[in-house]
Amino acid sequence: MKPLLEVKNLHTHFLTDDGLVKAVGGISYDLHEGETLGLVGESGCGKSVSALSILRLIPNPPGKVVEGEVFFEGRDLMKVSEDEIREVRGNKIAMIFQEPMTSLNPVLTIGYQIAEPLTLHKGLSKEESWKEAGELLTKVQIPEAAARLRAYPHLFSGGMRQRVMIAMGLGCNPKLIIADEPTTALDVTIQAQLLELMKGLTRDFGTALIIITHNLGVVARYADRVNVMYAGRIVEKGSAKEIYGDPRHPYTIGLMASVPRLDMDVKKKLIPIEGQPPDLLHIPAGCAFRPRCNYAVEKCQEVIPELTTLADKHEVACWVDVRRN
């Protein structure tokens, strides 16, 4: 089966006062219909930028997608016209951002903001679109949905706003939802509610989902497949079971060992990844993770390792076979 989304060798650069920042340095991955992909990494690893690049939402200046192709339903999104990409955004691919406080317009009612894209993309009349907006709010489990349509965003809490964002995302039955740290700003119990809701909705509608997060637990609970990113590149990808059960990249291994787990032995010390996260202005030659890596060999200094396939769809970008050490 042909994948829904194919990202091929995507590069996104930013030109700042301090120099050229290679935020995304050549990443490739596929996503099939109905799949949930976790994009994990720390701040600055390029996970958000790579997602924004797919929808051509990188502000220029200072940024630009300098190379690469993104095939979605057979079309290269990097080459289609402005009108076509606008049709894709919100209609075929919905995006949910981290900041539920700022992604809604404070002077328009919730109902208007959900109904407006429906009239635009689906050609519904005003009454129809408002009726559907009410149904969408019910779907995202907002109580008394019909009455809430007339309310303004400031009356909604962060969790409720994020629900509205999800409702807006679902409005046009998108094929793909990209959720960029959708719950990071929210409380733990609200986080769980929302993720559960999103997972349920994608299951019901067969929508593909990309969750961008730094939280390894969230990915473990919800994702089918995982891409681990470091300094603008994918360093390991595979099914969630393989990434967590048999991590092969030193960075992935380091991440797993450095977070406390609720079920771990409390006497065990955490093993941190030493050093600092990479400075994208000065990415070292060779493997970007080398300065922090316990397994590094001489070759790592010189040549950037490419992703190589280990087993069924499990790929890792590392010169060293970590199992031998």
């Binding site: 733990v188 609200i190 986080q191 637990g217 969230v218 787990r261 079920d263």
Partner: peptide, 21 residues
């Protein structure tokens, strides 16, 4: 509500989702 970074454990865990804010 705290997910454990292990898909195998997560698949078997009971998830209590409390409602409301």
């Amino acid at each position: 509500a705290i997910p454990i970074p292990d898909p195998v454990v997560e698949a078997e865990r009971e998830h209590i989702i409390i409602q409301g804010e």
